[in-house]
Design a protein around this nucleic acid. Structure first.
Length: 108
DNA sequence: GCGTTGACGGCGG
DNA sequence: CCCGCCGCCAACG
C-alpha cells in the first residue's frame, strides 16, 4: 500500500507497470490504472506519480486520461498539446479536448 | 498535527 | 452540458 515513502516506490512501479499494459491506440482512466495496478481508489495518487515522471520517460503516460474522457491539462497548455499530439499520432481522436471512451477505452 | 492542494471519480440537480 | 458536493489519497508547508 502507498502509505510511506518506503513502499511508495513499489507503488510507483505497480502504476508504471499497469500503464505499460495499455495497448497502442487505446487509453485508460486514472481510476482504471489504479485498479489494475492493484490499488483501487487511488486515482489521485496515480496523477501524482505521473507528475514526477521525467519528460523523456518511455512510459506511455499520455494514454492516461480522466474519467470524463478528457486530457487533464488546461486546453492550450504545452502539456495538453504534447499529450494530444502523442495520442493523435497513434490514431486516437481528440476533439475539443475530449476522447470517446466508448471507442478508445482499454477494456480487459 | 492540520489545512491545502492536485495530471481524480461518481452522483445529483 | 455545466456545477456543486463529497469521498478519496499522498505530498507539502
Amino acid at each position: 500500500m502507498p502509505l510511506t515513502a518506503n513502499n511508495s516506490v513499489s507503488y510507483d512501479e505497480a502504476i508504471w507497470t499497469a500503464i505499460g499494459f495499455i495497448p497502442e491506440g487505446k487509453v485508460a482512466t486514472y481510476g482504471q490504472v489504479a485498479e489494475i495496478a492493484g490499488f483501487p481508489r487511488t486515482a489521485r495518487a496515480v496523477g501524482r506519480v505521473l507528475s514526477k515522471l521525467p519528460k523523456d520517460t518511455l512510459i506511455p503516460w499520455f494514454r492516461v486520461i480522466n474519467a470524463k474522457g478528457e486530457i487533464s491539462f488546461p486546453i492550450g497548455s504545452s502539456r495538453y498539446d504534447a499529450q494530444k499530439q502523442r495520442l493523435q499520432d497513434e490514431g486516437v481522436v481528440v476533439l475539443n479536448g475530449k476522447i470517446n471512451l466508448k471507442s478508445y477505452r482499454w477494456e480487459i
